[in-house]
């Protein structure tokens, strides 16, 4: 479904991605883990067209989207719940969700999408008319995820969806990820919480300073000593903040 080949991205002199290759197949949950600054969010920005690839290619559903404009990429069926939430602060919760469905034209489908999101996040339903900038951090995170679901994406990119959520909500988010996936959405998940991510994912890629260090079956990586020591707190507590 998504195939990245030898992707290189730089921010001026900083080489954020030094030629990474990865694939996400239809129906999978794939997780991308790695320490701070490894290039995880940059990978998602490149997929959505927000940063330019210097070389390499990104293909989605067989089409080359490496140099496509973001709105074209989004309308092909990719959506993103970004790092740092990025809600529209002066718009209401409902308007934010409406923008999530911006590329859709089917009125009935949009109505269904609202129902689904409000069903998943009753908190958002209660706060439908509230200005997004005044939501709590956790509520904004729900809004970012809800907004990403509004387009009924084929591929959902989640950048640290559990960030800033209370422990019970973190569990709920991971259950949600599994259930969205079961309903047919392919997911590429970035998480600081590598343990949780590896336990819901089918496959995983480990990024280290712009390069893929390991990849493979998520369950296997969960047992892998190198991964355990670097990302699962094997060598003591790891910072969880991004």
């Amino acid at each position: 479904m998504l195939k990245i080949d030898n992707l290189v991205v730089s921010y001026g002199p900083i080489n954020a991605l030094k030629g990474i290759s990865l694939e996400v197949k239809q129906g999978e949950i794939v997780t991308l883990i790695g320490s701070n600054g490894a290039g995880k969010s940059t990978t998602l920005s490149a997929i959505t067209g927000l940063v330019r690839a210097q070389s390499g290619s990104i293909r989605f559903l067989g089409e080359d989207i490496t140099h496509a404009a973001p709105h074209r990429i989004i309308s092909r069926g990719i959506s993103i719940s970004p790092e740092g939430r990025e809600v529209f602060p002066a718009l209401t919760v409902h308007e934010n969700l409406r923008l999530g469905a911006y590329t859709r034209k089917d009125k009935a489908g949009i109505e269904q999408a609202y129902d689904r999101v409000y069903d998943l996040f009753p908190r958002l339903k209660e706060r439908m008319g509230q200005i997004a900038g005044t939501l709590s951090g956790g509520e904004q995170q729900m809004l970012a995820i809800g907004r990403a679901l509004m387009s009924a994406p084929r591929l959902l990119l989640l950048d640290e969806p559990s960030m800033g959520l209370a422990p019970n909500l973190v569990l709920m988010i991971f259950e949600l990820i599994e259930s969205i996936n079961k309903q047919g959405t392919t997911i590429l998940l970035i998480e600081q919480n590598a343990n949780m991510a590896l336990s819901v994912a089918d496959r995983a890629f480990v990024l280290e300073t712009g390069k893929i260090a390991f990849s493979g079956d998520a369950r296997t990586l969960l047992q892998d000593d190198r991964v355990r020591s670097a990302y699962l707190g094997g060598k003591g507590a790891q910072s969880r903040r991004g």
Binding site: T48, G49, L50, A69, P70, H71, I74, S75, S79, I80, P82, E86, V87, F88, P89, A90, L91, E95, R98, L99, G100, Y102, T103, R147, S151
Partner: peptide, 22 residues
């Protein structure tokens, strides 16, 4: 109009929901 307000408030997010910002 909604797209204009979206760009006004958060251009990056407007790109991310598929608004043709240009």
């Amino acid at each position: 109009g909604l797209a204009m307000r979206a760009v006004q408030q958060n251009t990056k997010a407007a790109h991310m929901v598929g608004v043709n910002v240009n």
